[in-house]
Design a protein around this nucleic acid. Structure first.
Lengths: 206, 206
DNA sequence: TTTGAAATCAAACAAACGTTTAACTTTGCG
DNA sequence: CGCAAAGTTAAACGTTTGTTTGATTTCAAA
């Protein structure tokens, strides 16, 4: 891996763990084992580096649900697939999602704020459409579509906020790593699917 | 209001908006209209000030559910009351909850991390007990108790992460302030109550 | 082997940072 | 009033910050 990519992935990790302001360019240079000046050389500035990290990673997590919406399976099965996809994505890149959500909660870089809003809202339109279709066709109850989406994303996000918090909530020992646990991933998927079936389906028998 | 309290509430606001590292003591002094040295004089250091803010505010949001658990209403009604209480608390202090959750997602101040974990987990035991009682008595389905709690808190938290994000999710105009909207608060309460009734109750007819 | 652009480096820069100092003012009690 | 404690101030402290400089090395094409 060349210096440029090493800097990018190291910066992602440190920004995710310690925040943008909490990470100095010297921290990054030392952790990436490159000279301090290489960061300015490749990216221009610390803030530009941050933007590159977000661009770089957000393109890699881009999942398009548009085709899913058009497929011929039932709406609740589409919801299942969206849950699997979100859980997979967020458990695979927990640090990056920390970074995105933390940046959203800050009033520091308005243009970064807008860019991240756009990334996170990218699929909301599609999901809204799926739930609305279910309601219109009589498959789903008349739920609050927008808050239902908040529940989906918020549940996963809350579990990923902190490793130790998650461990304590689940009464797990210190050697349990929530973020890499396949079992937990499946458990979260299962919980959300059951939750959404109860919440959405009419005449649900579970 | 005396200087000490002005510093505390100003620091709360700025830490909430810009983060701990993103806020300088000079920012706080200027916004609070006090001399820079007053912060060291009253609190010793920036980090100690931060701890005072967390202590100060966390004591004011302390809600004890223990008595609720013992009351003689049905378990689902207890869940309703917990939802109302959480929604009220988090919508009343959104900045402070930003601060808590952001600090949880950082690897910067381990002892602050532990203190906040303790604050946030304070009522989880009680809620777990209520849901478990409902399951044992046959009132509730055998759900995943711990992830159900994550859904409750995570949903509210996700809506409060960002004003503008929330506005866009709900398709509201720029003059709509999600954090002070009584309507939104009631809408979130209503959504969560319906969600939990469908999720928890056996033979639910709604 | 020569050459020139790309890559890397140690060193230095000014600005911002958290904190401390020492002098000054206000306050409340004897 | 007298005076000590508490409150307040401007200035300065040393460190860390992001960034830039100019010299040096690397390395593939000529």
């Amino acid at each position: 891996m060349d210096a440029r990519e090493t800097i990018l992935s190291t910066a992602m990790k440190l920004f995710g763990e310690k925040g943008f302001e909490g990470t100095s360019v010297r921290d990054i240079a030392k952790a990436a084992d490159v000279n301090l000046a290489m960061i300015s050389y490749y990216f221009g500035s610390k803030e530009k580096l941050f933007e590159h990290v977000v661009d770089y990673k957000s393109s890699s997590i881009r999942v398009v649900f548009a085709e899913l919406a058009k497929s011929s399976i039932s709406q609740i099965e589409k919801v299942d697939k969206i849950i699997d996809s979100y859980v997979e994505r967020m458990f695979t890149n927990p640090q990056f999602h920390h970074l995105l959500h933390r940046e959203l909660s800050l009033h520091q870089r308005p243009q970064m704020h807008d860019a991240i809003t756009e990334i996170l809202l990218r699929n909301v339109v599609t999901i809204t459409g799926i739930i609305q279709s279910g309601i219109d066709s009589g498959e789903f109850k008349e739920v609050d579509t927008q808050l239902t989406i908040a529940t989906l994303i918020g549940t996963i996000n809350h579990l990923l906020i902190s490793e130790s918090m998650c461990r304590k909530l689940l009464h797990k020992s210190k050697d349990f790593n929530p973020f890499t646990s396949k079992k937990l991933k499946e458990r979260v998927s299962e919980h959300l699917k059951q939750l959404m079936r109860s919440h959405l389906l009419i005449n649900n028998k579970s």
